[in-house]
Design a protein around this nucleic acid. Sequence first.
DNA 1: TTGGAGTGTCAACAAGGCTGACATAGTGTA
DNA 2: TACACTATGTCAGCCTTGTTGACACTCCAA
Lengths: 166, 166
Amino acid sequence: MGEIQRGESLLFLTDEQIRQGIEAIYFAYRSLLSEPDRILETMEYGRAHHRAVHFINRAPGTTVTNLLEILGVTKQSLNRVLRTLIEDGLVESRIGKHDKRERNLFLTDKGRALESELSDPQRERMRRAYREAGPEAVSGFRKLLEAMMDTELQIKYASMRENKDT
Amino acid sequence: MGEIQRGESLLFLTDEQIRQGIEAIYFAYRSLLSEPDRILETMEYGRAHHRAVHFINRAPGTTVTNLLEILGVTKQSLNRVLRTLIEDGLVESRIGKHDKRERNLFLTDKGRALESELSDPQRERMRRAYREAGPEAVSGFRKLLEAMMDTELQIKYASMRENKDT
DNA sequence: TTGGAGTGTCAACAAGGCTGACATAGTGTA
DNA sequence: TACACTATGTCAGCCTTGTTGACACTCCAA
């Protein structure tokens, strides 16, 4: 490839560097799923259930529509998952107060237990990586991931962090 | 978000920071798949084909077993994909020279064309993010992703970079 | 010569995406 | 009030891509 290197090196923009970055995300993402996957194998739930439970935990009272937007799936797909979670008593669906068409979703104690079981090892892995790489790496990591996101997801990501930053 | 505080502060290790990191990867990974997904919709291939083509392109002559390890799927699953790619003339499978049981996989011109079509927009997104975030962020990003990987994948990742680092 | 490795293939199944169609309740506006 | 629209749920059927299990063949190496 032919990036011309002027004064300050642009070597970090070579095709090779770009490719390695893409592969790094792929491998890291897969590793991040490995623990929950292993646990999920022993139960009647799948990744889709984990994702739903994760985001309901993060934003208790969220609506179905909001969850649909965050997860980027169809309502039929989400509903299949949500139905089993509600039937099994992991998620509670309350009719909206302002708008009775809406359903506000909450985790029950049982739901929170599942969320922990699945996410704790994931967070532990992440914590180890954070610690190992140090605060500066973490900051660069976050910066880059945000820059990679579609504007739409960037906005959702930002809004999920509201009132949560220390 | 707040500036990372130096000194004794371990604020970057709070649960909230960890969770945000996990979500950031999730959203970024999804964004990274969005362009190829859109293109794949118009053809008879899927993500699995993209992955296969990507790694064959990266390591021309690689064997089936090696590809299986990198992709982490079963041979039946990979074979289904590989078969269509070979039938369609995107991948060439040559009997190994040293070990005639092995198949060495190569992209044809047509295969390289598909790889480009799918990966170029992805690399373009990545390049933009790299440029926007700057070299230091890139370095932190890479460092953290590597720290997140399972040892096994870390090794594969490292070996893929051999003789490719500038 | 024999066991194991590398590969290919068949069949059956599951998870979790998708579309399309239709139903119901509730909201908001003309 | 009537009507259009929104939020949600559900049925049916399809696709991709993962899985297991079984079996076959070739070839390498001890």
